[in-house]
């Protein structure tokens, strides 16, 4: 695989760290006026999902990770694997395990397109679109007349996720949710 030097570091760059594939989130150039330059990298370990920081000496190299992000449509789960299909017309299917799915299980919906990260050809992370529309499976009855201000209550989605919603929301309502924060945006 190719190597990247510190001056090529950028957000989204996939690299190997202690034999785990990682993705750079944030890069900071650090240099005292009269002193050595360093590059501080905030990264996500794509295997564990954990975020870490590591500093490199200016000019150091990292090994590129054989990682690819592709769009895939969610089909179904057999309980052990969650099956996705490529949207490039090949109809090729791949199964992601629970670890790869992680928190994204809260935002799963059939026929929705997800960003699947492949490492050595196998899914290691599944990222939900930024916004997703899901119905309310269970919540306290809506309060008539309360359309905007004041109060919130939990609503349970078919995926098992719980989100805080305004009091006027009813079971069966479609909700637009920001998957990055897990927050209710609006009714859809």
């Amino acid at each position: 695989m190719a190597n990247y030097a510190t001056n090529e570091f950028k957000g989204g760059l996939k690299f190997m760290l202690d034999s785990d594939p990682c993705s750079m989130i944030d890069i900071e150039h650090i240099k005292p006026g009269k002193g050595q330059a360093f590059t501080r990298v905030k990264y996500r370990n794509l295997n564990s999902g954990r975020v870490g920081e590591k500093t490199f000496k200016s000019g150091d190299n990292v090994e590129a990770a054989d990682v690819m992000d592709i769009d895939m449509e969610f089909l179904y789960t057999d309980g052990e694997f969650w099956h996705f299909m490529k949207t490039d017309g090949s109809f090729e299917q791949l199964g992601a395990d629970a670890k790869a799915l992680g928190e994204t299980s809260k935002w799963l919906k059939e026929q929705e397109v997800y960003l699947v990260t492949l490492y050595n050809g196998a899914p290691i992370t599944v990222t939900a679109p930024n916004f997703i529309v899901l119905p309310v499976a269970e919540t306290d009855p809506g309060l008539k007349g309360d359309t905007a201000q004041g109060g919130s209550k939990p609503a349970i989605l078919p995926t098992g996720a719980s989100v805080r919603v305004p009091l006027f929301v009813n079971e069966g309502d479609l909700l637009k949710i920001d998957t990055r924060t897990g927050e209710y945006v609006s009714r859809a």
Binding site: I30, K31, P32, G35, Q36, F38, R40, G52, E53, K54, T55, F56, K57, D60
Partner: peptide, 21 residues
């Protein structure tokens, strides 16, 4: 403090890193 591979750093390099981090 920085997870750097420190075995390549000389004395001043270490001090610069500790100063900035």
């Amino acid at each position: 403090c920085s997870a750097i591979d420190a075995d390549q750093l000389d004395r001043d390099g270490c001090l610069d890193l500790l100063l900035s981090h």
